[in-house]
Design a protein around this nucleic acid. Sequence first.
DNA 1: AATTCATATCTACAGGTATCGATATGATTT
DNA 2: AAATCATATCGATACCTGTAGATATGAATT
Lengths: 129, 129
Amino acid sequence: MNRKICKVEIERLRRFIPERDHFETRTQKLISLVDRLDEEALSSEVKIFKAFADINRLKIVKLLKEGELCVCELTVALDNSQSTVSHHLSILKNAGVIKERKEGKWSYFRLSDGAVIGLLNQAKLLMEE
Amino acid sequence: MNRKICKVEIERLRRFIPERDHFETRTQKLISLVDRLDEEALSSEVKIFKAFADINRLKIVKLLKEGELCVCELTVALDNSQSTVSHHLSILKNAGVIKERKEGKWSYFRLSDGAVIGLLNQAKLLMEE
DNA sequence: AATTCATATCTACAGGTATCGATATGATTT
DNA sequence: AAATCATATCGATACCTGTAGATATGAATT
């Protein structure tokens, strides 16, 4: 997760900073704002959004709104290979979106809580505007 | 976006369907549920989640909560190359998350509306649980 | 009109990720 | 204990994506 730092570019931009009204104070404010961002918290947010950023995983989430399901049911419903479904489930689980319950040979998955549905609704709202 | 269909796998699973209580009706219900999902709408949702699924784009969104900013300000604040920032902005714009306003040489970007902030809050909620 | 500047686009590349088949694991059934 | 079954993990592969430098574009300045 280490971005390459582009110092040359920054210097190039800094050269004209004093020439524009308020530019320096504005950018200083922005820089300190970025510095105050919690990188770890941001990474968690990214992880959640990544979890939702795949059509098959979205389908899984929408199916799980109907209730708990096992891997084999999801495999049939999604028409994907079992290993693929398993992979998607582990990403969703790792992001905290879904929870697992083992029962004998079966693993049942369910949505973590109502926040997921709220998230989806917000996204839809954003989309419709 | 064309998933490969894994018929063999499905057939393998179908063989034991009649042997489990309610499995057939359950999976039939799930399959028809998936069939009724609007692929195009799902793709839009995925596009939005993808827009948020990068740490630099999240930072841009958080910076834009402070108000309208031009590309060069974001470039300094994020310490990324100009082309990279421009690329991220085009993804956010394409997903409908931000809007652009041109003024002379400058391009100013702003958040589309309050839905973004709601979306972020929902994600945070989900994360904290 | 020539230069400078802000931004967008193109090109290349490294790392990430979705997918599947094959195999491993761990439970259940025979 | 051997076989079967559900799921997870591994290995390979093709595609996707974030990044930066180079170049193009279009506006403002000289």
